[in-house]
Write a protein that binds this DNA or RNA. Structure first.
Lengths: 285, 285
DNA sequence: AATTTTAATGTAGTAAAACTTCATAACAAA
DNA sequence: TTTGTTATGAAGTTTTACTACATTAAAATT
């Protein structure tokens, strides 16, 4: 299996929906003629896509590239990737054959992991790991499907003797946020990044000087705007009907990355904790 | 390793011998630090490699690139050359590089999905889907990490107006199991298949004639033995230290399959429910 | 409906990057 | 020593990417 990390094309595909209209024009042109764009200057691209150069730069930034050159480099990298570029996410179909469903669901989940790797910024991940590693306490906020992600991370942290708490309702979130300090970290999970409760709680925590880490879909959203450290998951999910399936796997994948990062940084200490936890649990059988 | 088409690195390697001395200086620097060069302007590269900018351009031309930009694009493409990993799960290493961790974790999660597809029996999956579909009520039992899987399924079922409840502790599990009937289904999740609490509750449910579905690792275990329908996840997890990471993704993948199967069988009805649920949730923002 | 605010996009200017031209240095051959 | 050839850099030109500000369009507020 193949895992690449700098797939500019997929980054554009994923981010395009949150771009402004004229920015989308450029993005669409790039998606249609990626090879051409590689030999185009910003001015000729502005000509063919009928927007100003400034808009192109803004689009690059909106997609988390540092500029036009950086987008082109990333694009070039992705064009060299032999991965089945156009295998689309599969939707649920009526009365589908079970074997097909098994394959389609697994494929979607796999894709969401791969795509997430393209929108996750290594630097931001590193910052997040450091922040959590040095935090006095980590608060996790998530409601609905995201609550489960929060619970998962809470459990993981408990195993390695870190103070982390997951809150899934507005009241307890706020109650906890009120007491946070600048030494604390909030990891807020929301696929849309617009969940009212989360935004409210994060605001309170931010007011207390806590470090905010957001984990959202790869769009411009209010949660991500408030955050100090921004983590993204793929947002290409085929059908909203499928009910946040793939996105949740992608989020868990990010959680795994964070946890593994922390574990790696504190290898000796954490191996010890994990071994102890495992032994105790084993004896409970 | 796959053969790329625009491998700038190898182009340099091959052409370097026919370059002029000062041009070779540049080429050598690029071969040593290719990633760095990607974010370097021609002037900074001229500085670090101690040759003039003109020499760099001449070198690019000598290697059949149209210029410095074109060399960089080609370099970027070749650096992304996907690594096809051996099929082993990767373990956490000490003080690992973050980018590597991201890749390794994602790879493991991907593998666990793929492997699970190999140990899941289509017939059993079909039976499970039918059982759940026709059940009056579904009880889910899971403790620890598996509790999260249960919660996830519970949420999904709520969205489509099915009666499903997740229990994560012995007492409530037993309390619920006592009242189950032959029209009910128990979906019991345990990676080891030996969790005492789960076994106990399942026994009670079985006594009431309920259909038992087990979701365990691919081993012979007591839970699987008691079950009417047996679902498995891959059990190849590399290190127990990594803390039930990949296995949990695999379990969720199975949950997704079950849910999708039910959705597919009741397409119209469920699409309706999902649309309604989504709208309501949206308005809460 | 009028006014203010905010967001989206383009214009024009700037700094820096890539590339060219030409001068010079180093060396070899006559 | 002179002449020709090759390798390299300095300085200049053009092009590119990017910035700051202005304008327009759309929302929100009065």
């Amino acid at each position: 299996m193949i895992i690449g990390m700098t797939n500019g094309l997929s980054k554009i595909q994923q981010g395009i929906s949150s771009l402004k209209p004229s920015e989308q024009k450029v993005a669409n042109y790039i998606l249609k003629h990626p090879e051409k764009v590689l030999n185009m200057s910003i001015s000729s691209l502005s000509e063919v896509s009928k927007v100003s150069e400034a808009t192109i730069i803004r689009m690059c930034r909106a997609l988390n590239f540092t500029g036009y050159q950086s987008l082109k480099l990333s694009l070039s990298a992705s064009l060299n990737e032999p991965v089945i570029r156009d295998r689309k996410y599969q939707d649920i179909s009526e009365n589908g054959n079970i074997a097909d469903i098994m394959k389609a669901v697994s494929f979607n989940n796999f894709r969401s992991i791969e795509d997430t790797l393209n929108v996750l910024d290594v630097k931001e991940v590193e910052k997040a790991i450091n922040a959590i590693d040095h935090a006095r306490k980590v608060d996790m906020y998530g409601v609905g499907a995201s609550a489960i992600i929060a619970l998962d991370f809470e459990q993981k942290c408990k195993r390695i003797n870190r103070w982390c708490e997951a809150f899934s309702d507005n009241h307890t979130q706020l109650t906890s946020a009120v007491h946070l300090t600048s030494q604390d970290v909030v990891l807020a999970v929301s696929y849309s990044g617009e969940t009212k409760e989360i935004l409210e709680s994060v605001k309170v925590a931010k007011g207390n000087g806590s470090t905010i880490i957001s984990l959202t879909g790869f769009t411009k959203n209010r949660l991500q705007k408030m955050a100090d450290i921004r983590l993204y998951t793929s947002s290409q999910e085929k059908s909203i009907r499928s009910g946040a399936m793939a996105s949740r796997i992608a989020q868990l994948n990010v959680i795994d990355i964070l946890f593994t990062g922390i574990a790696s940084k504190n290898y000796e200490e954490i191996a010890h904790y994990l071994d102890r936890t495992r032994d105790i649990v084993k004896n409970r059988r």
